[in-house]
Structures are given as C-alpha cells and as structure tokens.
Design a protein around this nucleic acid. Structure first.
Lengths: 213, 213
DNA sequence: CGATAAACTAAGCAAGCGCTTAGACACCCA
DNA sequence: TGGGTGTCTAAGCGCTTGCTTAGTTTATCG
C-alpha cells in the first residue's frame, strides 16, 4: 500500500456550521444571513439585491434593515462568523493533537472538509472579500493571519521535532492552505469524493508537502 | 541541501500575455478588454458599470457597444482568451519536456508564475465565472477540462514510467492545480517572492505531491 | 471629389437599485 | 388596561443601471 493511502492516524472531527449561532442573534437575523449567503454565492454580492435577500428570508425589503444596517453589513457578518468558526476549529484541532504530524493531519482534514461542506460560504468569503469596507476587510484579515499563524506554528514545531523537512516554511504554509481553501472553488455536491474523503486525501497530500511520513 | 530546494532542471519559460492579441481584434477592442479586466478585478463584474469600462478606455458609454454586444460579452472574451493562452502554454510546456518529471516542473512553474503575473485576470476567470451565460460557461469549462487533461496525462505517464508514486491520480491533479491557481488568490505585487520564484518553489512542492524525486 | 462604411458621441429611456419613511401590529410589564 | 418597545410592511424617493437611438466625424477608395 502506497504511503499516501495508508490510513491516517485518527483525527478529531469537528462539525462546524457555516454561520454559527452566537449571542445576540435572533432567529430572523440568522435566517437573513443564511438567505444572504445563498444569494451571494449564487449571484455575487453586487449581483444580489436586497429584495432577493428579503424574499428568500420571507420578509419585505424593508425588513432587512431592522436587523442589519446595510447589505455590506450582512456580508461582513457572514465573513466574520465564517472565519471565526473556521479559526476556532483549526486552533482546537492543533491543540488537541499529540504531535505536529497529527496536528497537521487534523488541521488539513477538517479545514478541507469544511471548505467542501460549506463551499458556498467559502466562496463568498474569498470572492466577495474585496467588497467589504476597508475597516471590515482589516478585521477579516486579522482572522486570516491567525489561521496562517496556526498552520505556521505546526510546521515550525514539526521541523524542530524532526518530523517534517520544510525548506521554506512561509511558502509551504501557503501551499497547505491553498490545498484546503481551493476545495471551495472546485467542489460541488455530487462529485466522486464526499467532503470527508477529500479531507482524508488532502491530509495525506499535505503530509507529503511537508516531507513527513 | 534539502530535496525541495535543489535546483530544478531547467524548464522552458513561456511569457504569456493576460489577453493575447488574436486575429480580428482591433486595438480599441483590446484596450476595452484591458480596461474591463482592470475594472472587473477592482470592482467585480456586477460592481463594474459600462461607464467605468468606457471611461477607463477613453470612450463614451456607447462606444463600448461598437466592439462588444454586452458587458457579459466583454467578460467572456477576457475569460476565453485567458484560458486559451494558459492552455496553449501548458500543452506546449508538457510537449517540449523530455520526461514526466520535467513536464510536471515545466507545467507547474509556468502556470504558477502566470497566476502571479496575471493575478487580476486569474481572479476574474475564477471569481466571475458564474456570471457568464450558461453557453459561455460551457465553452470555458471545455478549456478547463483540457487543462485538467494535460496535467492528468503527465501524472499517468510519470506513474507508468515509475517516476511518480500517485495513489489517486484525479485527486492529485486537483491538488497540483490548486497549488497553481490559488496563487492568484493570495498573490499581490510587492510580497517577498517574485512570480518567478513562486513558480520554482511550487514546482518543487508539486514534485513532492506526486512522490517524485 | 463624392460616396460608402466604420467608429464614435450626446442624449436619454425603461427598469431596477439601496435604503427610508410612516404607520400597523404584537407582545410585555405596570 | 394602557403605554412602551421591538418587528414588520406598503409605498416610494432619488439615483444609477445596461443599453439604444439618432446623428456626427473619420477613414477608405474609385
């Protein structure tokens, strides 16, 4: 059996919703965010009208503005909650692993699976990022840097422990994240591999990227 | 020196314009496509107005419609020419290589470098794809399948020749392409690595993905 | 020179946009 | 029971949208 198909060590599996329920969010606001996420991923931010969002959520156009100050505010809430949930899952996965190798496998399999299962939110977050206000962009950038740092930490520890062979840590972090994030671009329901399998194969491929065993 | 930093075999370098000049394209039409590409990558397809495009090209709003039938027609021309140029470069790189290993290195270094140098067109092609008409989407999908097939061919030959160890060819093709295409998402001018270096490190990383030496 | 075709503009049309206003309900604790 | 608060709608305001129309300029060629 080839190295990349060998069963990976069991990794903890995190179920992460696309838009997590947090304090102070009414059910109508959550319904609006889900409606907006659907519309944005179908039509793009500028291609979506506030009437689209309202009608998908079963409200009149004016009903949106009871819960959000603007269409951009909706986009920001989706991006921020999505990033925060993903980051928490990553950090958790890394912390609960007993070695850098297991941490990498946990991170890549969970992050890849999330980008398949939540590919609609994943695309919004990546493709519509530029339509956030500069202030909101900076907040989201901060979350991205935390995700980057979490992966960088794992690689550094793996190199220090002699588990990985990585000539250029920063470049390899980007490559590992590309592997995971790009899933949202090509994934669609009904293709051969289930999200779970994509996570498993990507974890094995990431291990190759870092020169691990 | 670690395996991944060892100087890669010399690979032919292809300079590919974002929007290639082809027969039957006047200079004004090309100027319009470049103006539209700039605008689309700044503001998104729906965020861009035909007045934006016209003024960037130094024309009145109506002047656009002398050369293109609609805003979507402009988007399609950018996508089709971009994909065609990239595919031609890929196929050329694969054909002029003397082994699967060299073909992979040539493909990945050129394709990655292109996605850095032409990251604006790269983003349009990926992010605004969904705003093409279904008929135009299918044409672009056809070009993508050709790109996919070119990479798949190289991997199959490498496995057959014993140069690569690839348990799941289709999954690994996707991973190799993710490595290249995702460059357009994170690249921006002024970062540490030049496009040329990104191509070189990605080529080395791709070799790891396929279990090559 | 005069005719023809192509490239371009000024003006504007119908439709749709994000968002606001004014007011109608429903629910809560006094 | 009654006033306050939060949620929602009908209507619509001011503006922008993609694209068209009618007409002018420029290039080409016999």
């Amino acid at each position: 059996m080839s190295e990349a198909t060998r069963a990976a060590p069991r990794v903890r599996r995190y179920a992460v919703p696309a838009i997590p329920l947090t304090e102070g969010v009414t059910s109508t606001a959550l319904r609006l965010m889900e409606a907006a996420a659907d519309a944005f991923s179908d039509l793009g931010f500028h291609g979506t009208t506030t009437r689209d969002i309202a009608s998908r959520a079963g409200l009149s156009p004016a009903g949106v503005y009871v819960h959000f100050t603007s269409k951009e505010d909706l986009l920001f809430n989706i991006c921020e909650r999505g990033h925060t949930a993903a980051r928490d899952m990553l950090v958790d996965a890394a912390r609960s692993a007993s070695s850098p190798t297991e941490a990498l496998l946990a991170i890549v399999s969970n992050f890849s699976r999330w980008h398949a299962e939540q590919y609609r939110v994943g695309r919004i977050v990546q493709y519509e990022f530029g339509h956030l206000t500069p202030a909101h962009q900076e907040i989201v950038m901060g979350l991205r840097k935390q995700i980057n740092a979490a992966v960088q930490d794992v690689l550094r520890h793996g190199v220090a422990a002699g588990e990985f062979d990585v000539p250029d840590v920063a470049a390899t972090v980007l490559a590992v994240l590309s592997l995971c994030i790009d899933v949202a671009r090509w994934y669609q329901p009904g293709i051969r591999r289930r999200p779970e399998e994509i996570g498993a194969t990507n974890a094995a491929l990431a291990l190759r990227l870092v020169g691990g065993t």
